[in-house]
């Protein structure tokens, strides 16, 4: 586990805070004085997982860096809904350049800050780059891999909602198998996205042997905050991949965003772990094991698997992928400690 679980206080580790906890043991998000790095009035859809994930992550980074933070943003939902010129929701220094170059822009800022600091003009200013899965795993992948191999002092955060959502839900290389998108329609013999394609970027990041790689979801706030904090303890290239459900693209009710992230983790569909220098250091174990069906059924993008004659074989293939994650990352449920 990435963090010390809170001793039993009614809700223990799972809630955002709790009146019974001393303030220092509550999450950053529980504080009445949290940064709200991304402010109200943004144009994200109702129940947007990415807006939530971005606030969770950047608020934690602000806390960890004593507010000495600059963010570079790739094109994507996060950029579009937060910053329609000339208005912005960001309450931190923030820059958007192109779809594919957020990692490179961040590298440049980090280099500039290093020089300015050496000249005594600024303090220890840290740099974050962020983008969606399209800007990260597809379009920005070259720049990102370069940032990794040069070990530039940047934390890259990818908010993975499994597709190009703001342009109308097209497939990305992070779209899960069998999911219906605008470019992988639910027609033909094997409807939806093709099995055996796409990539799991956290594993590729680990292959660069960079200091820190982690995955997280918006359903596990304590874990997410602990990982951002940990990432900020390292110098060099770091990568955090956060699963952020998208009510629009996934076809789920807006109030189920956190539930969907929780189901992704509990079914083993999305492994939550952290790795240092290419080695897995800890995983967030499954708490209440569930079959993948529980995760798939509520989503309209998988509706074609559950018609009059359910696609049993396809569901079994997805279950096999989840089982592989559980084996590979050792996610089996274990006894909860109080």
């Amino acid at each position: 586990m990435s963090f010390q679980p809170v001793k039993f206080y009614q809700t223990g580790t799972f809630t955002v805070g709790n009146r019974l906890l001393p303030p220092e043991e509550r999450s950053v998000q529980a504080s009445g004085k949290r940064f709200n790095s991304i402010n109200s009035g943004h144009r994200a859809c109702q129940g947007c997982g990415e807006a939530l994930g971005a606030r969770y992550a950047i608020d934690a980074a602000m806390e960890a860096t004593d507010s000495q933070l600059i963010a570079a943003n790739a094109t994507g939902c996060l950029e579009v809904f937060s910053t329609p010129y000339p208005e912005t929701s960001w309450q931190i220094p923030w820059i958007h350049s192109l779809f594919g170059n957020a990692a490179a822009v961040a590298t440049g800022i980090a280099a500039a800050m290093k020089v300015k600091r050496a000249k005594g003009k600024v303090g220890d200013v840290r740099v974050v780059a962020q983008g969606g899965d399209g800007g990260t795993t597809d379009i920005g992948f070259g720049c990102l891999s370069g940032m990794f191999e040069r070990n530039d002092d940047v934390l890259y955060i990818c908010y993975d909602n499994g597709g190009y959502m703001n342009t109308g839900v097209q497939r990305s290389s992070a779209t899960p198998a069998a999911a219906r998108t605008a470019t992988t329609p639910a027609v033909g013999h094997d409807p939806g996205n093709v099995f055996g394609q796409g990539k799991f970027l956290p594993a590729i990041a680990m292959a660069h042997d960079i200091p820190y790689v982690a995955t997280a979801t918006v359903a596990d706030l304590r874990d997410l905050e602990a990982k951002v904090r940990r990432a900020m303890e390292f110098r060099g290239a770091r990568y955090i991949h956060i699963l952020v459900p998208c009510p629009l693209g996934w076809g789920t009710p807006s109030h189920d965003t956190i539930k969907m992230a929780r189901l992704a983790k509990e079914t083993g569909i999305f492994p939550v772990f952290e790795a240092e220098h290419g080695e897995v250091k800890s995983v967030l174990a499954i708490r209440r094991p569930l079959p993948v069906e529980e995760y798939l059924r509520p989503q309209k993008r998988f509706a074609h698997l559950f018609g009059k004659s359910p696609a049993v074989a396809t569901i079994a293939r997805i279950q096999a992928l989840a089982d592989k994650n559980i084996r590979k990352y050792r996610l089996q449920a274990r006894q909860e400690s109080h």
């Binding site: 809700t11 809630t15 955002v16 805070g17 709790n18 009146r19 998000q29 947007c48 807006a51």
Partner: peptide, 27 residues
């Protein structure tokens, strides 16, 4: 005290900060 804390406070706010934390709109 442990036993009291097993109470789930059904139907009555016990200030766990969840609503405050999970709102994507800081509302």
């Amino acid at each position: 005290q442990f036993e009291a804390r097993r109470c789930m406070s059904c139907g009555n706010c016990f200030e766990c900060d969840n609503c405050y934390g999970v709102c994507p709109d800081n509302a």
